[in-house]
Design a protein around this nucleic acid. Sequence first.
DNA 1: AACTTGACGAGGG
DNA 2: CCCCTCGCCAAGT
Length: 120
Amino acid sequence: MNIVNDKTYREPVFEIVRGIPAGKVMTYGQIAIILGEGYTARTVGYVMHGSDEGVPWQRVINSQGKCSTDKLTMPVSLQRSMLESAGVIFSKKGKCDLGVYQWFPEGFEPDEGPQPSLLF
DNA sequence: AACTTGACGAGGG
DNA sequence: CCCCTCGCCAAGT
């Protein structure tokens, strides 16, 4: 059995990704932690590799704020430009500020109050 | 069954 | 910052 073809395994991942609003992003590891049991950053990335079905795949990046699709299914340039047109700003080195753009689903917000960068 | 490869991540130099 | 090492775990050879 192959998890990429196992809908019961992939669906929870896609459900979360479909909930990310435009202009926001989530990381592979973050999704794995939320799903818990049986999911790891690697397997989430593996599932995303075969995403289709209207899933906004471009909103999932790695924990360093960088796009990881290089030379694979989709070129980084495409993922990055799609996010930029949604308002996400990238540094010269291709990194975006997770403190500003990372999305937390309802019930998974990090525990403290507003961050300095969000007060303005 | 052994070994290599990743849309990964944390930690150290 | 960049680079390397490990831990991770499913897939492909």
